[in-house]
């Protein structure tokens, strides 16, 4: 799975890059502003874009997720400390990983989404650190899975 990092905190982006490679995905690039992210999404067509809500040009991550989905067909996954502020429809993004995420939490989310995007179906319930958008959970058949405590 090809992954684009959209994050204005450069050291977080550096560490994310390692996590992406460690789960067998490819880090295709890194943008710090919504304009750069939009251009890179159009150019590189990644399978997934990890999108922080606050970027160099302000709280533009939510609009960015909508744009890359409608203009380039790129799926976003939000990374934010403020999960509650996301719109109910997740702006078309497939879900959110809350900050501060752990190394394991982010890796588990990436592995899970890699399978979901490849098969069009979830391999089970989402791991603890990942909250799926309702529309994507339905598309991947997560609602049909048995609930476990």
């Amino acid at each position: 799975m090809n992954v684009l990092i959209v994050e204005d905190e450069i050291l977080l982006a550096m560490e994310l890059s390692f996590l992406i490679e460690e789960v067998g995905c490819v880090d295709v690039g890194h943008a710090m502003s919504s304009a750069d992210a939009l251009a890179m999404a159009a150019d590189l067509r990644p399978d997934l874009a990890l999108v922080d809500v606050h970027l160099q040009d302000g709280p533009t991550g939510i609009d960015l997720a909508r744009h890359i989905a409608s203009d380039c067909g790129v799926v976003a996954l939000f990374m934010t400390a403020n999960v509650k502020r996301l719109p109910a429809d997740f702006a078309g993004a497939c879900g959110v990983v809350g900050k501060p995420y752990s190394e394991h939490g982010m890796k588990a989310a990436l592995r899970y989404l890699d399978i979901c995007l490849r098969d069009g179906r979830a391999p089970g319930l989402a791991p603890a650190g990942l909250q799926l958008a309702p529309a994507w959970a339905e598309r991947w058949g997560v609602g049909d899975l048995p609930r476990i405590a």
């Binding site: 905190e9 977080l12 550096m14 560490e15 994310l16 400390a81 900050k99 501060p100 995420y101 752990s102």
Partner: peptide, 18 residues
Amino acid sequence: VDHRVKNNLQLVSSLLLL
């Protein structure tokens, strides 16, 4: 403040991993 605490914890954690 809550937002900053969470983001800074993320930064500290990622720095130690790096």
